[in-house]
Design a protein around this nucleic acid. Structure first.
Length: 420
DNA sequence: TCTGGGGTCCTAGGACCC
DNA sequence: TCTGGGGTCCTAGGACCC
């Protein structure tokens, strides 16, 4: 049996843990740049605030109902996530951290145990140890556990915990689940299924395999088998190294000049380099893209370009160097830019890297330099030591975060508070 | 005034090989 | 009238997830 444990309204719950004054108030958390609503407390959902709604469109309701608004504080959420996951790890030796607020737990070893009792123990312990409320769904496959978790949260009788074990309970759950609410069925496939009069998860399990494969590909077939109780998705306990890494942001204030874009691109390139080093990889290709504001009624421009680098790299300085070259090749004057980003791909392990025959990258020197730089930044705060190309920490294009909360649980916030 | 960021997997089709 | 058979690799685009 597999449990899916999912934190309720995770970001909003994190804000509440250290701020008791907002525990009974409607809370929303905004995306980067204070753009859209990405997390809502139960009270905010009840007020009709929608997921993804732009902040500026709900300002009236915020005022009227006294909604507590927060910029996203990923330093805080990341740390709270670690606490939750550590707590969950006490309950099973085999666990997959699926996202910042979700984990799959292998409960196969506890088959003799009363799973209902065990699931409640998990829920109560996470709340007691971290202050974060969670829902627990237990079933034979990941996809069924997802369904159990969803129903656990919806049903007042379940009250956050649901174990689907008996065939008649599984069938009832499948009948109560619309196809668009199945994990792995998105908008397009839901439309297609409804068109064929397949409305619930139960309907879907009754289709024959070749029809499913033809219409939903091999991915859909796996999903249907999982719904029937046949495991096709393994628990992935160690996350495989990433194949691509991307850093991109919208600007707090739009940027016109090449100089502004160069600073932003350098910053994102350095972030990509850091992420590469964290997973022990080097990149053999780098992509830069720039775009104007697609919502604005102004001249539009989007462009991106990828180049291969002679030898795979993961030094800030190398990434910044190549990113700058690519940026200059796609920049056109006269547009108002809203966003840019850097993507690194063709990732290879740094320790088994094929060096170039005419390697001019000074790989060893850069490795030592970056090691020192990462050490300093870990000790003294993010970007305390950085390339001058990344610009000032007061740059106007940096993220807007008007409603940021303190980083309650970490010594150093990622908003710089001290200067060397 | 104002609209997020970061990933994965699969398929079809083209280019190429013998 | 009629034009082989079997592969691999790469890329773009679409669908999905949080």
């Amino acid at each position: 049996m597999i449990a899916l444990v999912d934190c309720n309204n995770f970001y909003a719950s994190c804000e509440r843990v250290f701020n008791p004054a907002i525990r009974n108030k409607p809370v929303v958390v905004l995306s980067n740049n204070d753009g859209c609503v990405i997390a809502r407390s139960a009270e905010s959902k009840a007020l009709g605030i929608k997921m993804g709604e732009p902040h500026f469109m709900i300002k009236e309701q915020v005022k009227q109902h006294g909604i507590e608004v927060f910029s996203s504080n990923y330093t805080l959420y990341g740390d709270m996530s670690n606490r939750v996951m550590k707590t969950l790890a006490e309950f099973t030796p085999n666990l997959e951290v699926y996202s910042i607020d979700e984990s799959f737990l292998d409960l196969g070893h506890f088959f003799g145990k009363d799973l209902q009792t065990y699931a409640w123990e998990i829920k109560n312990t996470v709340l007691n140890w971290t202050g974060i409320p969670v829902g627990v769904g237990v079933a034979k496959t990941k996809t069924l556990a997802k369904i159990a978790n969803r129903l656990a949260k919806k049903s007042s009788k379940a009250n956050g915990v649901l174990v689907l074990q008996e065939p008649e309970h599984v069938k009832a759950a499948l009948e109560r689940t619309e196809v668009e609410d199945i994990w792995g069925i998105g908008k397009q496939n839901a439309r297609l299924l409804k068109h064929h009069n397949i409305n619930t998860a139960y309907d879907l399990t009754q289709q024959n395999d070749s029809w499913v494969k033809k219409n939903l590909t091999i991915v859909g077939l796996r999903l249907v088998k999982e719904l029937r109780g046949e495991p096709c998705l393994q628990l992935e306990e160690v996350d495989p190294p990433k194949k691509n890494i991307c850093t991109s942001r919208s600007f707090g204030t739009p940027v016109k000049s090449l100089c502004g874009l160069e600073e932003a691109t350098a910053l994102y390139a350095a972030k990509c380099a850091y992420k590469l080093r964290q997973q022990g990889s080097c990149a053999s290709a780098i992509t830069v893209f720039i775009t104007t504001n697609t919502f604005a009624n102004t001249k539009q421009y989007y462009n991106s370009r990828t180049i291969q680098v002679p030898t795979p790299i993961n030094s800030d300085l190398h990434l910044i160097h190549y990113a700058s070259i690519v940026l200059k090749s796609i920049y056109v004057e006269g547009y108002i830019y809203k966003k840019c980003g850097v993507i690194v791909s063709g990732l290879v392990p740094e320790n088994t890297m094929q060096l170039g025959l005419f390697d001019g990258a000074d790989t060893g020197k850069h490795r030592d330099l970056m090691h020192a730089l990462d050490g300093l930044n870990k000790k003294y705060g993010q970007a305390m030591v950085k390339s001058a190309a990344q610009g000032s920490s007061k740059a106007e294009w940096l993220l807007k975060r008007e409603y940021i909360s303190p980083c309650y649980t970490t010594k150093l916030s990622d908003v710089p508070v001290a200067r060397l």
